[in-house]
Amino acid sequence: MTGATRRDGYPVRVTVNGAARTVEVSSTETLLDALRWNLDLTGSKECCAEGECGACTVLVDGRAVNSCLVLAVESDGLDITTVEGLETGGPAGGRLSRLQDAFLEKGAVQCGFCIPGMVMAAQALLNENPHPRPDEVREGLAGNLCRCAGYQRIVDAVLLAAEEDA
């Protein structure tokens, strides 16, 4: 979906990265489409479009959600955080969150296509469990596929962010 002419438009009010937004969406459009094409937040990615890869992970009220599985029309009133909302101080010259920085510090990023979803899933994990054990991180990120990395560095990055948070 790329935000071209729509036959049916429904207004949906959401809070995205702290700002109230109203978007016109079609009845078949997913939350992922609406974020990417209506709100120009292309950080969230689409891979499987069936809830199996986690590339589209966003936070809804602080919890990880596969945005490809949510219909945009059902998102009315939700508080959504996307990867674009993790930096503090705005996108230009903004400061990376501890978690984002830990991903770079540990060399957890390769092609980066899975990374927005991975970071959001990790953020959700830390929201619920600020000091996870390694096996809890492995369990918590099992819904997010990465084909490049050996996963080890991703797990290490989450543990590093949790440690710094102590």
């Binding site: 990417r36 950080g43 990615k45 689409e46 996307t82 903004g94 990376l96 510090e105 990023v109 980066g112």
Partner: peptide, 18 residues
């Protein structure tokens, strides 16, 4: 650190689909 890493953890990296 990876050149282009910052773009990749912030979602700013433009892939062909973007």
């Amino acid at each position: 650190r990876r050149v282009g890493g910052r773009e990749r953890v912030t979602g700013r990296q433009r892939f062909v689909g973007d």
